[in-house]
Design a protein around this nucleic acid. Structure first.
Lengths: 188, 188
DNA sequence: CAGGCATACTCAAAAAGTTGAGTATCAGAT
DNA sequence: ATCTGATACTCAACTTTTTGAGTATGCCTG
């Protein structure tokens, strides 16, 4: 039910195929609701069956045909209704944190590596967010941007994703240094 | 499968009942893997059946008996194996962000309210994190703390939760001011 | 002395999400 | 000339999570 709304929200940016959505689609859906391709295709099918989106087939040469989905008026209305409802709180669920919680009874090196992997991932993602941000701002300040554009939603969600990754980086750096000290102490 | 490990990791802090876990249990499980009480009871049952935890019934007067679960050696070993595996990346799934993404075609006031609610929630949660942190540090600096205690996992996960809520606060404050400007502009 | 909240659970259906295995075509690299 | 990787999907089994409805006792407040 929530993926449904994430897809509708993303289609506000324009028509997209299942494949587009499954590859970040300009980093859109993935910023607030990650899903596997299978889920996206299935949900798009369901949305089309309910008349919330329409599909048109685009024939391409040199690559498979694709179905581009776009919002219908009913879809827009469904999205509006969704925004009018209160949001439930986010469930934090992070496998890395489970491992970190268990580090004292676990494999210190492996956890260290997992944190380092996350750090690297977060840095790459932050760079992508920064590129997306630069593209949106196009040389303007934030205030100028907000004054000039129609849609503020995509920028706000981008900023949340960006600060999330920034925090991941700060935390992971600190955690690594603490884990390293602990490893040194164990080695004695 | 991941909830399983979250429970095992939490039980490192000592025995707990399903009810304890379902009420934050010193904010433990909830910091990295939120679950409903039903899920926790079911998972504890499954863990007991697999011999990863053992239950002992504690008879209480003036309140219902409870079953306290603690880790077995097999459970400890399962947890260790889990920490040795690489962690998969976290799926970001936040209903509030879906609403914010859709705000331009949605109900601006309702979204504003949803962001304000999140801000309030994040502030309350930050205060709880700060209390937990003060309790753990007990007047020591972080470095002193790390030198003195056996377990660093719980502090590290607490810090991640804390910085997550801090970022929620910063973002929500900024988002509110932008949404307000937008509302003023619409009102013209 | 009634009503609500806290403790402490259980059962089960339905919805949502994950995992694994395919299909088919074309571009570019080895 | 073959192999990898990108595009663009589909089907199905399985696991996980959510939602809703209960049970039972005792404490505290108005």
């Amino acid at each position: 039910m929530a993926l449904r709304n994430a897809i509708l929200a993303t289609l506000l940016e324009g028509e997209a195929s299942g494949y587009d959505l499954s590859k970040g689609f300009d980093a859109s859906v993935a910023n607030f609701w990650m899903a596997t391709p299978q889920q996206l295709y299935k949900e798009l099918e369901a949305l089309a069956a309910q008349g919330l989106v329409t599909a048109r087939v685009v024939e391409q040469d040199r690559r498979p045909n694709k179905r581009l989905f776009s919002l219908t008026d009913a879809g827009r209305e469904a999205l509006r209704e969704f925004t009018a409802q209160p949001a439930k709180i986010t469930a934090i669920r992070d496998e890395l944190l489970v491992k970190v919680q268990a580090v004292d009874a676990g494999d210190l090196d492996a956890v260290r590596r997992a944190v380092a992997d996350r750090l690297e991932y977060a840095r790459a993602k932050l760079a992508r967010y920064d590129r997306g941000r630069a593209r949106m701002l196009a040389g303007r300040t934030e205030d100028e941007y907000f004054d000039q554009v129609e849609r503020i939603g995509p920028y706000l969600t981008l900023m949340r994703g960006r600060s999330f990754e920034k925090e991941n980086i700060r935390w992971a750096e600190r955690a690594l240094s603490i884990l390293d000290k602990r490893a040194a102490r164990r080695a004695l």
